[in-house]
Write a protein that binds this DNA or RNA. Sequence first.
RNA 1: GGAGAGAUGCCGGAGAGGUCGAACGGGGCCGACUCGAAAUCGGCUGUGCGGCUUAAACCGCACCGGGGGUUCGAAUCCCUCUCUCUCCGCCA
Length: 440
Amino acid sequence: MLDLRFVREHLDLVRRKTEERQSELDLDLFVSLDARRRDVLARVEQLRRERNEVSKRISRKDIEQQDRKSLIDRMRAVSAEAKSLEKELRAVESQLDDFMRVIPNLSHDDVPVGKDERSNVEVRRWGEIPEFDFEPRAHWDLGPALDILDFERAARMSGSRFVVNKGLGARLERALINFMLDLHVNEHGYREIIPPFLVSYETCFGSGQIPKLEDDMYYCLGPAQIADRGDEPFRSEEWPGLFLVPTGEVPLVNLFREETLEEDQLPLNLTAYTPCFRREAGTYGKDQRGLIRLHQFNKVELVKITTPDASWDALEQLTSHAETVLRRLGLAYRVVSLCTGDLTFASAKTYDLEVWFPCQKRFREISSCSNCTDFQARRAGIRYRPKSGKSRLVHTLNGSGLAVGRTLAAVLENYQQPDGSVKVPEVLVPYMGGVETIAP
RNA sequence: GGAGAGAUGCCGGAGAGGUCGAACGGGGCCGACUCGAAAUCGGCUGUGCGGCUUAAACCGCACCGGGGGUUCGAAUCCCUCUCUCUCCGCCA
């Protein structure tokens, strides 16, 4: 969420920035709601002030019985008027709030302006794109051929966009998770967290998943709750159920919801392995095969909570921490700065890491590292107390470090051998119990 | 799932319809004393919103787990939700 006063005082900036993000905003509506709110608020407060003053007089011992009676009578009317105005105030505030909660974050000024991914800017590349003297196979062929990935049985159990890892395929997934966590904990100074994988409405709101992205989340209710609710859609604040986390960012950012941290606690560096659950609504044609787009996948997430002046440096750091995973694995990748139209709702600036897939002969996203500035902090109420002065909102950053399923796919494709086997990247061998090759 | 207890400021802990933004204690900050420190003494110690303002000061409103209600007036009464604790049951 943006600061109300900031929006009021920078209407043109907010208009331009939201248009750059391909987001439509009726700022005239904002202006009138904001003005109306302040008008009603002033009147309500005036009435309350009168009520408070007179009530104080009523309570005094030295007042005549007669006077007290007439004062109470008068206040009855004032109180009734205040009550109806308060109702109006609540209505206006809720409309204004509905408006505020769908405004996306403001992009940083060095974010390239553009409509869609075609305007993204490549920042740097790393690694050699591997050459094969045979036709490289896709991971969705390699996996089943090696009997380490099983898409058919997964589909029978759960439908499309699921996978079963088997044998060394399961081991490799776990090896990647452990390798990534160890790297971030031991070398990059992150604290490992195991959060809940089911979270509340408020938690999803805090990190900005709701209300804009709620259709992509799985929402869990018990049968009794569904029956209670009948056909009524869940569109109020009182969602009784829980959401399956779409990314570890959600529980990690919300770890300190409604808290004021001490400045010397910052920056907070958190990492967590979590499964991620996404409905992938509206992606029917895309990535039908393989591990690229699943309803459930594993991810190691990185989150930093910093003071406002430190967050831009922190974004570079966090991105480099995610890059280190790819470098150690020896996978070629590039870093892309997302343009305004491609930024997610809460982000002010995002670097995507894209890894090389030899079979598709292109780079595919494997990590997304964002600085959300104070946008999530304002929604989630995360503040810190500076050494001196008033408490302020923190800045929050998040990034994948990395998406495990996609990493596994990239390893299979980039490390495949002419005989159909796959070499295990050197850094993973200890995590594979010494296994150096996955052969049929 | 059943029974009971509770949720107050940075922490502990009063409060039980009006003078409570909240006693008292602790912590923290400032000052005095001291060569310095401890002890002692004095003062200060939340947030949000609105008005005024260059800003501060100042004024007003709100906030005692969340929401709603009763009342001229609520931390205090009523309803409801959430969470915590104790006991019982069930369970990985």
